[in-house]
Amino acid sequence: MLTYIVRRLLQSVLVLIAVGFIAFSLFSYVGDPINNMVGVEATDAEREWARKTLGLDDPFPVQFARFAAKAVQGDFGQSYRLSIPVATAIGERLPATLELVFVAAVMALLIGVPLGVYTGLHRDGAISRILLTISLIGISLPTFLIGILLIMVFSVWLGWLPSFGRGATVDLWGWESNLVSWEGFKSIILPAVTLCLFQLTLLMRLVRAEMLEVLRTDYIKFARARGLTNRAVNFGHALKNTLVPVITITGLQIGSLIAFAIITETVFQWPGMGLLFLQAIQFVDIPVMAAYLCLVAFIFVVINLIVDILYYAIDPRLRLDGSGHAH
């Protein structure tokens, strides 16, 4: 167990270094930063002096080490576009994205799993068939189109829900939140539904497939033969054993929720990290791009690590196999 975790930790660090390297090479290959800083009339000697004092003539590994050391402390320099420190810009936007992702993930779990169980138990029922057909369409619908459709129906036609921005947020000890008041919650409904729809269909199909698989096994037949109630068999025995892949996928999908938040935030003009990143790409705001890249990589790696360890904790069979072959 311990060797396994240590090995995974080492791998994660390697990934982070690789991503940091990519982010750093963004800085070093795009133009000459000195040109952006000094005036047009600066002499060569002045340029040379600036280069030296900023440490830009140091060898590549030294510069990379300096970048990494600063990055670990959250210092990515100034944003070219906003002229404020990148850490501040991201810090302001982070709560919005995290709240959105959190609400979407909870929705996907609370709706997706029960629907999956239902369609798994009543595999030939009319409702199941309808749900499955809808889910196929849901997978073919791109996220941004779902968002536009929802805006069209609920904001433009019905006028029930706001279509952009965070609306009224409540300040909870420095954390702007949408979740404590109804007015704020109204703003998060449409973006969260848009973001969760794909994960919801994915979860539903996954749980359904797993349920069908498990219901065929001998121990379920045995449980029925023992005369246990349907409820005990379906939920106590069957559902419990479908949870391992569900947890893995949910964990990994949180990563893709953060990535797809870029799209949702653009459609709904939600002031989160994704929107910031997209604007950074359009304006070639390299410090923000580099910081976002490192932050997202960090989040992904941490989630992957947690999922792997959870996997290990939940499924006792893996512990018997010896640590090297946990996958």
Partner: peptide, 11 residues
């Protein structure tokens, strides 16, 4: 593979 395709394409 641990990064979604849209994100990679954007980057």
């Amino acid at each position: 593979l641990s990064f979604p395709a849209v994100l990679v394409a954007l980057l």
